Computed example of a mutant assay.
Amino acid sequence: MSAPPSPPPAPARLTDRKRQAIVQAAIDAFRAHGFEATSMDRIAALAGVSKRTVYNHFASKDALFDEIMLRLWQQAAAAVDVAYAAHAPLRPQLLALMQQKLRMLEDEHFFGLARVAIAEAIHAPERARDMVARLGDKEVGLARWIAAAMADGRLKPGDARFAAQQMEGLVKGFAFWPQLTMGQPALSRAQQEQVASSAVDLFLSHYASDADR
């Protein structure tokens, strides 16, 4: 009888845990003190690791900020992704996308990452612009869906990314910016449904082809 497979080596798991602890410590420190006022010593202390360990994972605070921005983008991209279905009605597909977006916007982890990114963008816009430029070449779910529907002739031709920004603006004006800037509570499920439904109807009233109205 063969021996059972051995578990993954502990050092690899420990390394992953330390990296996650460092990133979370950086998020907490950047939120509490800002990017410039946060030292690598502070991050190491919060993470419970040595400063050398922090530098083994991240060469600089800029690299840590890049990691936070990348995770923010990855979470957003993974959370909002519905494949375009050519033979299905447009409205239910868009509603599913917007409902995914609203669920993501109420997630505390996503909100924490967004706070860090936005605060740093205010203090050092050039750093945020550089990161956004690097991530901008990657299509996200909504823009990809709109591009497919435009290519299929079911949405009017145009700039899919611009259209996606318009659509997201309709949602974030109720479910993101008021909570971030004015401390308003998260939307209830009924409010989310209202926001998603009205945003989809407004979007389709402009972009849907005549055959899909």
Score class of each variant (00 low, 15 high):
residue 104 M to C: 05
residue 17 R to L: 12
residue 180 L to F: 15
residue 117 A to M: 13
residue 208 A to S: 15
residue 165 Q to H: 10
residue 198 S to C: 02
residue 140 V to N: 01
residue 5 P to K: 09
residue 102 L to Y: 02
residue 110 F to G: 02
residue 130 D to H: 12
residue 3 A to P: 06
residue 173 G to R: 12
residue 2 S to F: 11
residue 40 M to F: 06
residue 92 P to I: 06
residue 147 A to W: 06
residue 15 T to W: 07
residue 81 D to G: 04
residue 4 P to I: 04
residue 163 A to K: 10
residue 149 A to L: 11
residue 110 F to H: 11
residue 149 A to W: 03
residue 101 K to Q: 15
residue 9 P to S: 09
residue 89 P to N: 01
residue 87 H to P: 00
residue 164 A to K: 04
residue 68 I to M: 06
residue 129 R to M: 14
residue 88 A to E: 15
residue 16 D to P: 00
residue 159 D to F: 07
residue 128 A to R: 09
residue 116 V to C: 08
residue 105 L to Y: 00
residue 98 M to D: 06
residue 53 T to M: 14
residue 39 S to H: 12
residue 144 R to E: 05
residue 110 F to T: 01
residue 40 M to I: 15
residue 199 A to I: 05
residue 50 S to N: 10
residue 99 Q to R: 15
residue 182 M to A: 09
residue 141 G to W: 00
residue 115 R to N: 08
residue 81 D to K: 07
residue 160 A to S: 08
residue 185 P to V: 03
residue 8 P to R: 02
residue 203 F to M: 09
residue 38 T to P: 06
residue 206 H to L: 13
residue 68 I to R: 01
residue 66 D to R: 03
residue 200 V to G: 09
residue 174 F to W: 15
residue 179 Q to D: 10
residue 120 E to N: 12
residue 191 Q to G: 00
residue 44 A to V: 11
residue 36 E to V: 12
residue 148 A to P: 03
residue 22 I to Y: 03
residue 110 F to Y: 15
residue 155 L to F: 05
residue 145 W to M: 08
residue 213 R to G: 15
residue 48 G to C: 06
residue 177 W to Q: 01
residue 67 E to I: 02
residue 66 D to Q: 04
residue 166 Q to P: 02
residue 213 R to E: 14
residue 94 L to H: 11
residue 131 M to C: 12
residue 164 A to N: 09
residue 125 P to H: 10
residue 89 P to M: 02
residue 104 M to Q: 07
residue 16 D to R: 13
residue 174 F to S: 15
residue 75 Q to M: 12
residue 136 G to S: 03
residue 209 S to R: 12
residue 189 R to I: 00
residue 147 A to V: 06
residue 187 L to P: 06
residue 102 L to E: 07
residue 4 P to F: 01
residue 79 A to Q: 03
residue 200 V to Q: 09
residue 101 K to G: 07
residue 114 A to F: 15
residue 52 R to I: 13
residue 137 D to V: 08
residue 29 A to W: 03
residue 124 A to R: 15
residue 139 E to T: 03
residue 213 R to A: 15
residue 86 A to P: 00
residue 122 I to N: 11
residue 32 A to F: 00
residue 14 L to N: 02
residue 128 A to K: 07
residue 128 A to W: 06
residue 198 S to Q: 06
residue 69 M to E: 10
